[in-house]
């Protein structure tokens, strides 16, 4: 049985997929994940998930974000007075996300 492994670097971080292990049950999967994936890189926590329990939808089946112009939902569309600090930070994140979407 194959278990997908997700590692969290430190408390508060997201668990990120880092590999998989063979194991007969959850307890052993956690042990093997610890040995294979939690030994060298900073690790605060590991998740193991049976591979067949993972569902997936990808760009072949879905149009993530739709196919029409959605500029109205992006902060940079709106030219107004200089924004408050946290609003500007949000805009930066949005711009970055949109740029990456364009690259993909």
């Amino acid at each position: 049985m194959i278990w997908e492994v997700f590692r969290q670097n430190q408390a508060g971080d997201y668990h990120t997929h880092c590999g998989n292990v063979h194991a007969p049950d959850r307890e052993m999967a956690l042990l093997f994940a610890e040995v294979q994936h939690g030994r060298r890189k900073p690790t605060n926590s590991l998740w193991v998930v049976p591979q067949e329990e993972i569902g997936e939808v990808d760009t072949e089946d879905a149009k993530f974000g739709g196919t029409t112009n959605k500029s109205y939902r992006f902060a940079r569309t709106y030219n107004v007075e200089p924004a408050a600090e946290e609003v500007e930070a949000s805009e930066k994140e949005l711009t970055e996300a949109e740029r990456k979407r364009g690259e993909a």
Partner: peptide, 10 residues
């Protein structure tokens, strides 16, 4: 032993 455990877990 691991295979046996896997069969039981399944």
């Amino acid at each position: 032993a691991l295979d046996e455990q896997e069969a039981i877990a399944a």
